[in-house]
Design a binder for these strands. Structure first.
Length: 860
RNA sequence: GCCGGGAUGGCGGAAUUGGCAGACGCGCUGGACUUAGGAUCCAGUGCCGAAAGGCGUGCAGGUUCAAGUCCUGUUCCCGGCACCA
């Protein structure tokens, strides 16, 4: 009965060569025709699953980093579909930004045109790669139907006092000709121009009050177990919460003005022997006004500090300062201590003034040594934790002779009424004391600053505000949104925003009085666009609101996006702004979740020859070329196979060839062994299988288990793929002549089962080939939503177990037993083993251990 | 300086709970098929050794019948933060 299908027929009909191009073109064409193929269901009884990859900037073409990112997300989306979830898997474009303007200048193409052209190209690349996106929800942030809502949010922020304007020193990139947020300054340079130093300029800017949420942003990091520890730590550092005490030192000269210092170690205040002011501190300025010599020196310090900030050398410059000749009174003991101005005190951290305790702070020590300022010890380290031979290298505990020591494990000495308290007690009591006596209080400072969003550029969301001579700063009325960005204007990189030269845009009427007014020409930082785009996906065509709350609530649930995937380079900027935006949206009642993302995954970089792929190094691998030479399946699968997804991936061409070879092996096997017209094909698998057939069935179920576990539990796609390769190797090894399964030993029904399940296991990684083979196997259902195979523990069970035997910890032999063999019998068999015997003969057996996995014999 | 991650064959990597180190792939070697092979299939491949055996997860110790995995110390590499008071 196995011969009802003459073998000549299938070999004649089928091309047994794996032609990736032909297969992929066929399915590409089919998938194009069904626009709702990857649509999420609006109403569903299934559990929802929102999987999202970070939206790209349409720079021109995809690079391998994109492919890797999307291959991970796509595999996950497909896996979840197969597991019966209602999957939302959208894609869009972070399409405002400076490169479009640069292109306008260098290539004379309007930013919009350049951007849309790039989008078209990259979208075509994504489709060719077979990524299963719901394009009906595509978001393009440079379109008015999107940025209108940026403006709407801005008005909401403004109404609540969370958007405000202030004159401030800002980071200015001369190449971008615009302001940068603190988050966009990397080592003193622009994040886009790593060779360009950021300058400090004084400008009127719009800020968003992210600091209002600083505490919550920090606290909720502890509620994000699905985020990488690394990212949480980076955000913690960025927020930089620090608990301390404010203490007022009164100047004994002038008019008795207060200098408020911030300290985390108020317990050391009896050791304070000077007060240090930032050069830009208002009191410094006041003192210098009355003292030309001091003014000269302070100006020098300011210049030095500014230069150091610009070059990124702040932190390395030599500490020095100038004595003002004035004194301040320590309110705890009424001691008169000198007031200095020092180049290492920053005006934008704490209060811009510190108390200097040389005995217990490294920098203060260095400074005091240099200028001969008194060093007074006020903490005695804990004797119980004093250095002992065991922990003498412990740097937190130092001998008292080596000042300064900064330990908190100690007690106060020479500290008046506080002498004898532990440091922790003292900090609490002394802060309370300051509060009682009205010269200070406990406080919290943050490193994070409000988010400056003004950009003096054209290609961004216009900030919806106008300036009226009569009414001042007035918001545009909600009904008049969007404020449309004018088209076809001349772009230059100098002379401020290009919008200043567009009178039709610039000149408007005041929404309040109707009189003549001028529009704000600054546009928004593009990180505004990406702070909430993933909510828009849930209801992308809504023209009455940014999105419908109920719909967003369905997809975000209580905890947010189920899985977000992207590069670690967004660990701070995008991911902290998004969290802020979510909290704000919650506070205005749009959503109920506190956080946007439940689980975050940051994939590693794609590198080649030991370096990150970059045009300047000439080691870029173009996805288009890979698709043309090896196929989309091979390119995608290699990016998942070459390394676990969180690690860097070293791109090796021989590696992708190996994947192509594997896909060819799968193709050929199925092409030769798919016999859907065989009457045995659909029959139940008999229970009395031959040992060969049973071995294949066992391997199949073991493989299903491994792929499922590694996919679900660990996201180790490399080992998922390796497991499928092992199954394939097993099938080849047991096949006749290495090509055609021996159908007298392997019944058609099992052959059908193993091949169908193999294809299902492959579907998330190589969708084109999987679809082709699914069809070849006579399956007409949609593979995209075909159920993920289940493994049967009974069928996966080994019929005999090999047990290694160790003698004194060294592997000496192996025994084979049936499952369920008693421990005693296994031990006897192990001891009787010939090889083992040669190592234990004539020796005394101390003990024999059986762990369930191996036998360990100890002899003497 | 602080925080996070890492170091395993010639290479990318595997080993999920302390239990056979090196799965899978690349490369290499040999064989089959072939006019040919850079296609395909089969076999071998950590190092030393003819073999028996010995040695092997950055380094030095320790715990254990048993350590890539746990403990102590240490070196180097990658990423982030940094006069943060």
């Amino acid at each position: 009965m196995f011969d009802t299908m003459p073998q000549e027929k299938d070999t004649a009909v089928r091309d047994e060569r794996y032609n990736a191009q032909a297969i992929e073109e066929k399915w590409f064409a089919r998938w194009q025709q069904d626009t709702s193929l990857y649509s999420a269901e609006p109403h569903s009884t299934k559990a929802k699953y929102y999987v999202l990859e970070m939206l790209p900037y349409p720079s021109g073409a995809l690079h391998m980093g994109h492919v890797r990112n999307y291959a991970i997300g796509d595999a996950l989306a497909r896996y979840m579909w197969m597991n019966g979830y209602n999957v939302l898997h959208p894609m869009g474009w972070d399409s405002f930004g400076l490169p479009a303007e640069n292109a306008a200048i260098s290539a004379k193409v309007p930013p919009r045109e350049w951007t849309l052209r790039n989008i078209a190209n990259m979208k075509a690349q994504m489709k060719r790669l077979g990524f299963a996106y719901d394009w009906s929800r595509e978001v393009t942030t440079c379109f008015p139907d999107y940025y209108k809502w940026n403006q709407w949010f801005f008005l909401k922020l403004y109404e609540r006092g969370l958007a405000y304007r202030k004159k401030s020193k800002v980071n200015w990139c001369p190449k971008c000709a615009t302001v940068l947020a603190n988050e966009q300054v990397v080592g003193g340079c622009c994040w886009r121009h790593e060779d360009t130093l950021v300058q400090q300029r004084e400008l009127e800017q719009w800020f968003l009050r992210i600091t209002q949420y600083a505490d919550e942003l920090l606290r909720d990091l502890d509620r994000l177990p699905g985020w990488p520890e690394k990212v949480r730590t980076m955000q913690r550092n960025w927020i930089g919460r620090s608990e301390g005490t404010l203490v007022d030192f009164r100047l004994n000269s002038a008019n008795g003005e207060k200098i408020t210092v911030f300290t985390t170690r108020v317990d050391t205040i009896f050791g304070a022997t000077s007060v240090q002011l930032a050069p830009e501190h208002p009191i410094t300025s006041k003192l210098a006004d009355a003292d030309p010599e001091l003014r000269r020196k302070v100006d020098q310090l300011i210049a030095e500090q500014t230069r150091a900030k610009e070059t990124g050398d702040i932190g390395n410059i030599e500490k020095h300062g100038v004595n003002t000749g004035h004194f301040a009174i320590n309110p705890y003991n009424n001691e008169k201590i000198p007031v200095w101005v020092a180049n290492y005190i920053l005006m934008d951290y704490g209060t811009g003034a510190i108390m200097s305790v040389p005995a217990h702070d490294e920098r203060d020590y260095e400074f005091a040594k240099k200028y001969g300022i008194e060093i007074r010890q006020v903490i005695e380290p804990d004797v119980a934790r004093a250095p002992s031979p065991a922990n003498s290298a412990d740097k937190s505990v130092r001998a008292t002779s080596e000042l300064p020591f900064t330990t908190l494990d100690g007690r106060l000495i020479n500290s008046g009424p506080f002498t004898g308290l532990t440091c922790d007690e003292a900090i609490k009591k002394m802060a309370a004391y300051a509060e009682q006596h009205g010269f200070g209080k406990p406080t919290v400072t943050f490193r994070i600053k409000d988010w400056g969003i003004s950009r003096q550029r054209y290609w961004g969301t216009p900030i919806p505000m106008v300036f009226c001579e009569k009414d001042g700063v007035v918001p545009v009325a909600e009904k008049d949104l969007p404020v449309i960005l004018p088209a076809n204007i001349e772009i230059t990189l100098s002379g401020g925003s290009p919008l200043l030269r567009v009178p039709e845009f610039l000149n408007t009427t005041c929404p309040k009085c109707g009189g003549p007014a001028r529009r704000e020409t600054d546009t928004m930082d593009t990180f505004v666009d990406s702070s909430w785009y993933f909510y828009r996906y849930t209801d992308a065509r809504n023209d009455r609101a940014p999105f419908d709350s109920k719909i967003a609530q369905y997809w975000f649930g209580e905890k947010g996006i189920d899985q977000y995937i992207g590069g670690v380079e967004h660990a701070i900027l995008h991911l902290i702004y998004s969290r802020f935006w979510t909290k704000f949206m919650r506070d205005i009642g749009l959503i109920t979740n506190d956080e946007p993302v439940e689980r975050l995954f940051t994939q590693g970089m794609v590198i080649k020859d030991g370096a990150k792929m970059s045009k300047s190094l000439g080691n870029v691998v173009a996805p288009d070329e890979m698709v043309a030479r090896f196929g989309a399946d091979a390119a995608r699968m290699y990016s998942l196979f070459a390394a676990p997804p969180d690690r860097d991936l070293d791109w090796q061409e021989t590696g992708i060839e190996g994947i192509q070879r594997f896909l060819g092996r799968v193709y050929r096997f199925v092409a030769r062994n798919a016999h859907p017209d065989d009457p045995a094909w659909k029959k139940p698998i008999p229970s009395d299988l031959s040992p060969e057939a049973r071995a294949i069935q066992r391997k199949l179920h073991q493989t299903i288990k491994r792929v499922t576990d590694d996919f679900q539990g660990r996201w180790h796609f490399n080992t998922c793929i390796a497991a499928v390769m092992e199954l394939m190797n097993e099938l080849y090894t047991s096949a006749d002549e290495g090509v055609r399964a021996n159908r007298t030993l392997i019944p058609g029904s099992l052959l059908a089962d193993v091949q169908c399940k193999l294809v299902l296991l492959l579907a998330p990684f190589a969708p084109y080939l999987a679809h082709e083979l699914w069809e070849m196997l006579g399956e007409s259902s949609n593979l995209l939503k075909a159920p993920w195979p289940k493994f049967d523990p009974e069928l996966a069970k080994e019929e005999e177990i090999e047990i290694p035997v160790q003698v004194n910890g060294k592997l000496r032999g192996k025994i084979v037993v049936a499952p369920g063999t008693s421990e005693e019998e296994i031990k006897q068999k192990a001891l009787a083993d010939e090889k083992v015997q040669s190592h234990i003969a004539g020796k005394q057996i101390i003990k024999v251990i059986f762990t369930g996995k191996l036998v360990s014999i100890v002899v003497r």
